[in-house]
Lab assay of single mutants.
Amino acid sequence: MSIQHFRVALIPFFAAFCLPVFAHPETLVKVKDAEDQLGARVGYIELDLNSGKILESFRPEERFPMMSTFKVLLCGAVLSRVDAGQEQLGRRIHYSQNDLVEYSPVTEKHLTDGMTVRELCSAAITMSDNTAANLLLTTIGGPKELTAFLHNMGDHVTRLDRWEPELNEAIPNDERDTTMPAAMATTLRKLLTGELLTLASRQQLIDWMEADKVAGPLLRSALPAGWFIADKSGAGERGSRGIIAALGPDGKPSRIVVIYTTGSQATMDERNRQIAEIGASLIKHW
């Protein structure tokens, strides 16, 4: 067993022997301040990774656009098919120029040779490549099948209805392509620590998230040296922004954090800054 596999296998073990965790309302004060600064709703939840206990939450059962955070769930569904012998990570998928959609920095470079399922998941999570996500959605049967996968996990809230990039439209009061912070946090925890996926697939999923290259201005910008984070960000229309993450000190994750916002007129930089400040408060009061 590799060191990384050992780390993920012992996530519940280490967490069980940690000192009790206590909620700190100071972080919620910052979440509410972010709402004021952005002029928009902000949803927040913080779960203990081992027990699933909610440590703090704000608007945990209000719907927010998922945006690209759905790509972690998508690759979880792909990995479940791999575990069941219905898919192979090494299978190569070929596609054409007509398949390319807006923001496809990886797939646009491989029109000639195609990409493997493993490479597509890596591109979808680490670079948020939209064509990679659409190609992977095709392998599982489309958005409705991802929703069905989530329902089978016990998540009857999260739903995907459309493809990239239309799913980022974020129309107010439109339930399409949305989740709730509580539902997303619980589902992410199941994917990373539950028995739904094999140990190898859980490790692969967290490795992809740990290698995320496009979430630097968010929670990662607030992390002290030595902290662990595996995350996936999302951005959408109407001032929408979000991030889902597993993080913790001492090089291992111990909490799940989900943050979503929508309806702001603020710039992307300002949305990023507010999420980073929430992260800084979380870490300060850990």
Results as ranks from 00 to 15, higher is better:
His24Asn: 14
His24Arg: 13
Pro25Ser: 10
Glu26Ser: 12
Thr27Trp: 01
Thr27Glu: 04
Leu28Gly: 07
Leu28His: 08
Val29Met: 15
Lys30Arg: 15
Lys30Pro: 03
Lys30Thr: 12
Ala34Lys: 01
Glu35Phe: 02
Glu35Leu: 02
Asp36Cys: 12
Asp36Trp: 15
Leu38His: 07
Leu38Arg: 05
Gly39Ile: 08
Gly39Lys: 13
Ala40Tyr: 04
Arg41Ala: 09
Arg41Tyr: 08
Val42Pro: 01
Val42Cys: 05
Gly43Arg: 01
Gly43Tyr: 00
Tyr44Cys: 01
Tyr44Glu: 00
Ile45His: 04
Glu46Lys: 10
Leu49Ala: 09
Asn50Met: 15
Gly52Asp: 07
Ile54Met: 14
Leu55Gly: 06
Ser57Cys: 07
Phe58Gly: 04
Phe58Ala: 11
Glu61Asp: 14
Glu62Asp: 10
Glu62Val: 08
Arg63Met: 07
Phe64Ser: 00
Pro65Ala: 07
Met66Glu: 02
Thr69Cys: 06
Thr69Ser: 06
Phe70Gln: 06
Phe70Glu: 01
Leu73Arg: 04
Leu73Phe: 09
Leu74Cys: 05
Gly76His: 00
Gly76Gln: 00
Gly76Lys: 00
Ala77Cys: 14
Val78Phe: 05
Arg81Met: 10
Val82Met: 07
Gln86Lys: 15
Gly90Trp: 13
Arg91Thr: 08
Arg92Gln: 12
Ile93Cys: 04
Ser96Pro: 07
Ser96Ala: 13
Gln97Ala: 14
Asn98Trp: 14
Asp99Thr: 09
Asp99Asn: 09
Leu100Lys: 05
Leu100Gly: 03
Tyr103Thr: 06
Pro105Asp: 05
Pro105Glu: 06
Pro105Lys: 06
Glu108Gly: 13
Glu108Ala: 15
His110Trp: 09
Thr112His: 14
Thr112Tyr: 15
Thr116Met: 08
Arg118His: 13
Arg118Thr: 13
Leu120Lys: 01
Ala123Gln: 04
Ala124His: 00
Ile125Tyr: 01
Thr126Gly: 10
Thr126His: 06
Ser128Ala: 01
Asp129His: 00
Asp129Glu: 04
Asp129Ile: 00
Ala132Gly: 04
Asn134Tyr: 03
Leu136Thr: 04
Leu137Pro: 02
Leu137His: 01
Leu137Met: 11
Thr138Asn: 15
Ile140Val: 14
Gly141Lys: 07
Gly141Leu: 05
Gly142Cys: 04
Lys144Val: 11
Leu146Met: 10
Phe149Trp: 14
Phe149Ile: 12
Phe149Lys: 07
Leu150Phe: 12
Asn152Met: 15
Gly154Ile: 03
Gly154Ala: 07
Asp155Gly: 01
His156Phe: 15
Val157Asn: 10
Val157Gly: 10
Thr158Lys: 02
Asp161Tyr: 05
Glu164Met: 03
Glu164His: 00
Asn168Glu: 02
Asn168Phe: 00
Ala170Ile: 09
Ala170Tyr: 11
Ile171Phe: 15
Pro172Trp: 10
Pro172Ser: 10
Glu175Pro: 14
Glu175Thr: 13
Glu175Lys: 12
Arg176Ser: 08
Arg176Trp: 07
Thr178Ile: 05
Thr178Ala: 05
Thr179Glu: 00
Pro181Ala: 07
Pro181Glu: 03
Ala182Thr: 13
Ala182Asp: 09
Ala183Lys: 10
Met184Gly: 01
Thr187Arg: 05
Arg189His: 14
Leu191His: 03
Leu191Glu: 00
Thr193Val: 13
Glu195Trp: 08
Glu195Asn: 10
Leu197Val: 06
Thr198Arg: 11
Thr198Cys: 11
Ala200Met: 10
Ser201Gly: 12
Gln203Lys: 11
Gln204His: 12
Leu205Met: 11
Ile206Arg: 10
Ile206Phe: 10
Ile206His: 08
Asp207Tyr: 12
Trp208Arg: 01
Trp208Leu: 06
Glu210Ile: 15
Ala215Trp: 01
Gly216Gln: 10
Gly216Ile: 07
Gly216Cys: 07
Pro217Cys: 08
Pro217Val: 10
Leu218Asn: 03
Leu218Ala: 04
Arg220Ile: 01
Ser221Thr: 14
Ser221Phe: 08
Ser221Trp: 08
Ala222Lys: 14
Ala222Glu: 13
Leu223Ser: 06
Gly226Arg: 10
Gly226Glu: 10
Trp227Met: 01
Phe228Lys: 08
Asp231Cys: 05
Lys232Met: 01
Lys232Gln: 00
Gly234Tyr: 01
Ala235Leu: 06
Ala235Phe: 02
Gly236Lys: 03
Arg238Lys: 10
Arg238Trp: 12
Gly239His: 03
Gly239Leu: 02
Arg241Lys: 07
Arg241Cys: 06
Gly242Ala: 10
Gly242Leu: 00
Ile243Pro: 01
Ala246Trp: 06
Leu247Lys: 03
Leu247Ile: 15
Leu247Ala: 06
Pro249Ser: 09
Lys252Arg: 12
Arg255Val: 06
Val257Gly: 02
Val257Ala: 07
Val258Thr: 08
Val258Met: 05
Ile259Cys: 08
Ile259Tyr: 04
Tyr260Ser: 04
Thr261Asn: 06
Thr261Cys: 13
Thr262Met: 10
Gly263Tyr: 04
Gly263Thr: 06
Ser264Met: 07
Ser264Ile: 05
Gln265Phe: 12
Gln265Trp: 12
Ala266Thr: 14
Ala266Trp: 08
Asn272Met: 04
Arg273Leu: 11
Gln274Cys: 12
Gln274Val: 13
Ala276Phe: 11
Glu277His: 09
Ala280Trp: 13
Ser281Pro: 04
Ile283Met: 10
His285Leu: 09
Trp286Asn: 03
